[in-house]
Nucleic acid binder design. Sequence first.
DNA 1: GCCGTTTTCGGCCCGACTGTTTTCAGTCG
Length: 573
Amino acid sequence: MQNADVARFFDDLADLLEIQGANPFRIRAYRNAARTIENLTESVAGIAADPEQSLRDLPGIGKDLADKIVTILDTGRLPQLDALREEIPPGVVEMLRLPGIGPKKVAVLFRELGVASLDDLEQAAEQGRIAELKGFGKKTEQSILAGIAQVAAAGKRVWLAEAKTLADEIVAELSQRKSVGRASVAGSCRRLKETVGDLDVLVTSTDPAATMDGLAESERVSETLSRGETKQRVRLRSGLEMDLRVVPDDSYGAAMQYFTGSKEHNIVLRRRAQERGLKLNEYGLFRDGTSIAGRTEDEVYRSLDLPWIPPELRENRGEIERAEQGRLPTLIELSDIRGDLHMHTTATDGTATILDMVNGAKARNLKYIAITDHSKRVAMAGGLDAARLREHWANIDAIRKQTSGIEVLCGIECDILEDATLDLPDDVLSESDWVLAVLHYGLKQPREQINKRLLAAIRNPHVSAIGHPTGRLIGKRPGAEIDFDEVFRAAADFGVMLEINAHPARLDLDDIHAAAARDLGIPIVINTDAHSVSGLDMMQYGIYQARRAGLEKQNVANTRSWSQFRKLLRNRS
DNA sequence: GCCGTTTTCGGCCCGACTGTTTTCAGTCG
């Protein structure tokens, strides 16, 4: 059982308890436990099985929750959850997804009207039965109908690449207005999370009303959803929603801190303020009603006896403790990257020639690259068999001889087949400078078989790295189920690198698993998987993911000079 | 349900906006 699966039990339990009107602090305890488990770099099953470790050492896990975790791991069920599900149908929980509808309203709808699904709810709204309930009205009824349509339509999270591009454009647009002073993206987009649910933008303004009018009239905005003195929520034409907050200049740093989040990080900070007799909110840090910090984020953190913490790390995954101890990582930057070990050409499904890719890489100041076209199993992309691959390598060789200033490796993205063999024979792989082994097919196989495949690839002496280890496509398909503990141990033992694939749809390994791999000393490679020259620019998104994992330059193999990187390869055999 | 160099009981982060109210609960981030 994966950490995320265990966490889900507690989130589901919390949802049901909320509808039931249970003690809010008990509910919070379940949610805190879910976050703690989700953010672990070790597997919770591993901790439970290890006599040297105790679940109760995890923050927010006491006797009761430790027992519940063991029950979940042993039986795959949680009796309390099963009992609650008997009382509250799944459709009732689903209603929580509607904007403006929370547990209290859901409970009333279920209790008073017997509404037990989105379909029931839509019917009741159309019949005007909702507006008659106490605490409800015509507007709530209308917003329920609008919400149902919205949930059906989309309301989904978008890739960071899309959200960030849009957010940067909007900030630039707002910055041009005369009334606007400072402007910045905040929220999960600033934390560079792999997906973004909505945008948060912060501005200082001499004329808030005019600034909000300006946003409402922007080409990128389709409608204003709500608007007050300091906050405006709009829907963008792309479907994404955005909050604009207008804050006083003296509060800008505190507001940036507050609206960047994460919620979990902020809760710990506010508690820290309380312990020091202070109060922290979006307007500043206050002692007895007098502001003692707020103009800059740095000021806020310093006044809480902490160094400034990079937004990418603000998830309450131990960054506050590390900051306190002066052990914050020096996060990797794009300019640290020297090589790119995953890219395609017209030999398979790329759109650029070998020479184009080589020149594109040189233009981006890379010192070494690997050309890694597909192996034959990926027939749709025109994958290469042994003969075509050798021919391709000869072409790469020819170009390498007439090129200077960059090392070009004859590589291959070799499929790990469903039966745990590799798509090309060992004698071919042995001629390669760089073998990236990957899963493309059979991702739904049971975990045991997936692990068998990955372990077989890792043990093959010709394999250099595992590319996009889970095979997930964010928002489109989940990755393969992997026993990460076992795979990571094998990668560490055999000196096989693991990839963070920089494509915005992959970002695979994710932040948590990349951190776990780093903890085991496994060298990480960040690669673009470029299918065109401009695809080489995706490196930035891989760097973002690595920063969220807390990776430093020395954790990432392709920050090394070519001569250093080559040594890593030689150590392999 | 968790947690504790002020506590094993009594706390548990904070404010804006909306809709339904006539002073505030619910929701959201």
